[in-house]
């Protein structure tokens, strides 16, 4: 079953890359935008570290890792979340969701992973580079165990982001223009560029439980810095699984209201 799933996703992605490659200008724009965004972000971050100061007790390298995780997630958003969201909305508006529901394949997986846009890859790569630089120059030796933990935390942060996004996307069954709601989520996630402890207490709680920016970027960075407790690891995994489960339930619930646009 899993092998079959992977092979289908493979077909999906190779076809969508074929379709995207017709627009090659995008690659140049993407590379410029990644370079611009990264140098801007690093510049702003460096302001907080001038004259031996720091941000929320985090070292420069640790903050750089947070920024790396953020950039990585942004790349993931461009590769998968963003292009599929616009498709979900149009499937629902035009009623072509009918075709998907009648395929012998999980509809949630189909609508969320149908498209893969290669234009997010520059972001993904530079995110990984930034994380590596962060780890390397903090003289942290990443044992295999902590590498696994870091990887696990990244996976759960991706799952959390995906679930949040998917719940918003599902609401397009009721509301036509979810783009805008998604934009609100995106603009709030910008807060994830900085470690959680840079924020005041009240906001920190908000960013942990309501919009879990802490789990999205701070926790994976902590894992890379070898400074994450077992409790946080478990919480992050549990949170990811819970949100994933909710997103699936929510999709099935929303489908009950899908009347399939006729005519």
């Amino acid at each position: 079953m899993n092998l079959r799933f992977l092979s289908i996703i493979g077909v999906f992605w190779s076809k969508s890359i074929l379709a995207e490659i017709e627009y090659r200008v995008n690659l140049i724009v993407e590379i410029f935008s990644v370079i611009g965004n990264l140098s801007g972000s690093i510049l702003i971050l460096s302001l907080f570290y001038s004259n031996g100061n720091n941000l929320g007790g985090w070292t420069w390298n640790a903050s750089l890792t947070v920024l790396g995780v953020y950039t990585l997630l942004e790349g993931f958003t461009t590769c998968i979340l963003q292009p599929n969201l616009s498709r979900i909305v149009s499937h629902i508006q035009q009623g072509t969701l009918d075709f998907i529901l009648l395929k012998p394949f999980n509809s949630q997986l189909w609508v969320s992973f149908r498209i893969f846009s290669p234009w997010g890859l520059p972001s993904v790569v530079s995110g990984i580079i930034l994380i590596s630089i962060g780890i390397h120059s903090s003289n942290e030796v990443l044992s295999f165990n902590s590498f696994l933990i870091c990887f696990l935390m990244l996976i759960s942060s991706i799952l959390i982001l995906y679930s949040l996004w998917f719940v918003i996307a599902s609401t397009s069954i009721w509301f036509v223009r979810v783009w805008n709601a998604n934009e609100v989520l995106r603009s709030t996630l910008v807060a994830g560029r900085y470690p959680l402890s840079a924020y005041p207490d009240s906001l920190r709680r908000f960013f942990t439980f309501i919009i879990p920016i802490g789990f999205l970027t701070t926790v994976p960075a902590q894992a890379a810095m070898n400074s994450v407790s077992i409790g946080v690891i478990l919480a992050s995994c549990a949170f990811a699984l819970l949100l994933l489960w909710i997103s699936n339930r929510f999709w099935l619930f929303a489908l009950r209201f899908y009347t399939s646009a006729s005519s």
Partner: peptide, 24 residues
């Protein structure tokens, strides 16, 4: 949609909280 767009312009407020906490 306009309300949502207005809501999405909160970046300066996020930055305000960071700058207030920052030692620099």
């Amino acid at each position: 949609e306009i309300v949502l767009w207005a809501l999405s312009g909160i970046l300066p407020l996020i930055m305000l909280t960071i700058w207030k906490e920052a030692d620099i």
